[in-house]
Simulated assay, not measured.
Amino acid sequence: MRTQFWFCLFSALILTGCQSSSGYAQHSDSAPTFVYDEPAYTNAEPKYEPYKAFNSRPYEVLGTRYYPLQTGKGYEEVGFASWYGQKFHGHLTSNGETYDMFAMTAAHKTLPLPSYVKVTNLENGKTAIVRVNDRGP
């Protein structure tokens, strides 16, 4: 009887340990919790980079299918940008690069990877050039 109790307790602990709370959940995002030097906030420097073929395949997220564009030439979009911080810092992007929350990079659902885009804040007219190296909203 006592052996069964310890076996059940041990099994429960093992199963609980296998359930990981995802660090990718929205509630786990935050601004940096560590001291850092003020980023330079300089524009990304556009340069020719061939598109990565493995990022051109259609993909599905939360039941929605996306079809990456073959070129970003002439692409324009008006919408809302979102920000994510620490939850992805140090993880790999869709492009296979390590995400740096201080770099002038961006994510997009369908632009070819990598791409360079000019982003304009329509409320204050400020612009930034960023390198798109990840998939996302």
Rank of each mutant, 00 (worst) to 15 (best):
C8K: 14
Q19N: 06
F54I: 05
E38P: 06
Y24S: 07
K118W: 00
S22P: 02
R57Y: 04
Q70E: 14
M101R: 02
L69D: 06
V78P: 06
T42A: 10
Y66K: 04
Y75D: 08
S22Y: 03
R57M: 03
Y84P: 08
P32D: 04
Y84H: 10
P68V: 10
P114I: 01
Y84W: 09
T120Q: 04
G74P: 10
Q19G: 11
P58C: 03
V78C: 12
T98L: 09
P32L: 07
K52V: 12
A53I: 09
P137M: 02
L113G: 04
S11P: 05
G79T: 13
R65M: 12
G63Q: 11
K118L: 02
C8H: 10
T105E: 03
D100G: 15
P114G: 00
G85T: 13
V132H: 01
E45D: 15
H27A: 13
G90T: 12
R2M: 14
D100P: 06
K126A: 03
Y41D: 12
A107I: 08
N95W: 05
K47W: 04
D134K: 00
A40R: 13
T42E: 15
F34N: 05
P46D: 05
V130G: 03
C8E: 12
G85K: 03
S56G: 14
E45M: 14
E38F: 14
D134V: 02
Y41L: 14
K52P: 02
F54W: 12
G17M: 11
N133S: 01
Q19H: 08
G23S: 07
P32T: 02
T33V: 15
E45L: 14
Y84T: 09
R65D: 04
T98W: 12
P39W: 01
A106N: 04
Q86K: 15
G17C: 09
N133I: 04
E45R: 14
L122W: 00
Q70H: 10
P50M: 08
K126M: 02
K73D: 10
T98A: 08
Y67A: 10
G72N: 13
R2A: 15
T33Y: 11
T110I: 12
L62C: 10
F34T: 09
Y51M: 06
H108V: 01
Y84F: 14
W6N: 06
G17D: 08
A12G: 11
V130F: 00
T33Q: 15
G79A: 13
I14E: 06
P32M: 06
Y48I: 11
F5I: 13
E97D: 13
T93F: 07
A25T: 05
A40D: 15
T16A: 09
W83A: 12
Y41N: 13
L122V: 09
T110A: 07
L113K: 01
